[in-house]
């Protein structure tokens, strides 16, 4: 398809440069994206949960994304330069859980929904905090499930699973959850 002749392009460039100069919206803070907020929540989960100091923590604090990654570079930016329980953080992306004991937070992508039971079984006995956003995640044995409601991100917690993994979750975090399954729940 023939696009446009060079002449309109030249005038277009002019118009654009003029309009940019007077654009009224500069300086307003844009709304963050859903995954920027979810990434920030992951960072807060890391801060408000204590992992047992019994060898379940390695030299680095690892946040793993299992399956399809909805975060992209947002997650790397969120954790870059951060330390958790005195350890440097590291973001990993995995298609399968090869060494589950090295991982502290596992974000289980929605693409893994059919394998969820298998994944949770692999993690059993360890101290990884499992986070997901698929439907029924906490009911099926995941620990924290993100929810999006009226453009606001919140979450459900399955406290039984958290305690089974010997993780200590701050009451501040539990109080903020929309639904809590387990003995702390309503």
């Amino acid at each position: 398809m023939a696009l446009v002749s060079p002449l309109p392009w030249a005038s277009l460039a002019l118009v654009v440069s003029l309009l940019r100069a007077v654009s009224p919206v500069a300086g307003e803070a844009p709304r963050p994206t859903e995954y920027e907020v979810k990434a920030a929540f992951l960072y807060n989960f890391a801060k408000f949960v204590k992992w047992p100091e019994d060898g379940s923590l390695g030299p680095t604090f690892v946040i793993a994304v299992l399956g399809e990654d909805p975060f992209g570079e947002v997650l790397d930016r969120t954790f870059s330069g951060k330390t958790i329980q005195g350890r440097k953080t590291e973001v990993r992306r995995m298609r399968a859980l090869t060494a589950p004991s090295d991982v502290q937070i596992v974000f289980i992508g929605s693409s893994e929904r059919p394998h969820l039971a298998q994944i949770l079984k692999t993690l059993e006995g360890g101290s990884a905090l499992t986070v997901g956003e698929m439907e029924g995640f906490t009911e099926r044995g995941g620990m924290i499930a993100f929810r999006l409601r009226s453009d606001v991100v919140n979450f459900d917690i399955n406290l039984d699973q958290v305690e089974r993994a010997r993780l200590k979750m701050s009451s501040q975090l539990i109080r903020l959850a929309r639904n809590v399954i387990g003995k702390g729940g309503l």
């Binding site: 709304r31 859903e34 920030a40 960072y43 453009d151 606001v152």
Partner: peptide, 17 residues
């Protein structure tokens, strides 16, 4: 975002893009 409190984060509106 990471320096926001949990409560602030939980009331932040996101773009649905």
């Amino acid at each position: 975002l990471t320096s926001m409190s949990l409560e602030e984060l939980a009331s932040t509106k996101v773009t649905s893009v």
